[in-house]
């Protein structure tokens, strides 16, 4: 699935719409170059799921956890990790248990570790001089996402 947003606030709105389909136990893998807007999307999803404090970048802390009452949002970042053994030591798939939602930036290295996830790949549209246009490619692995494909497409229809 392919989508397009035209400003940071539009990307926030896209993330909010995406969050409507997300539920406890989900893992969202965010990929894309530096400055693509992975943190903006993670912040948008987090806010829509009930995170009330500023969601700061987990690049150095590796995992930031936010308690939202009925849900726990885990915001992870694998930018600093070069070795698969370190990724597995973070036990990201276990974080999704117990009403967790896991958002993983620079998440390519985690893909082999997780059985069921939605990948949100973000590209900057280089033809846009202002640098505000973003293109999103969504791919999923696992039956729970297969069942939600239509709901996902409906929720994000405005950006398709």
């Amino acid at each position: 699935m392919w989508f397009r947003t035209t400003s940071p606030s539009d990307t926030q709105a896209f993330a909010t719409a995406l969050a409507r389909v997300i539920r406890a136990g989900d893992t969202i893998v965010l990929t894309g170059e530096m400055g693509a807007g992975k943190t903006v999307v993670a912040q948008g999803i987090g806010a829509a799921l009930g995170v009330s404090e500023p969601m700061t970048s987990p690049t150095f802390t590796l995992v930031n956890t936010y308690d939202c009452g009925n849900l726990t949002v885990h915001h992870a970042d694998l930018y600093r990790l070069d070795r698969t053994v370190e990724v597995s030591d973070l036990a990201l798939s276990e974080l999704a248990e117990f009403q967790g939602v896991v958002l993983i930036e620079w998440g390519e290295a985690a893909i082999g570790e997780i059985a069921d996830y939605l990948e949100v790949h973000i590209e900057v549209d280089l033809d846009d001089n202002e640098g505000n246009v973003r293109e999103f490619t969504l791919d999923s692995v696992g039956s729970s996402w297969d069942r939600r494909r239509d709901a996902l497409a409906a929720s994000l229809e405005d950006w398709s």
Binding site: M34, T39, Q43, P54, T56, S57, T59, F60, Y79
Partner: peptide, 18 residues
């Protein structure tokens, strides 16, 4: 006060790598 997104040291690290 605090950062609302990236820490300053992270910006140094990412710009250096870039």
């Amino acid at each position: 006060g605090r950062t609302i997104d990236d820490a300053a040291g992270e910006a140094f690290d990412k710009v250096a790598r870039y």
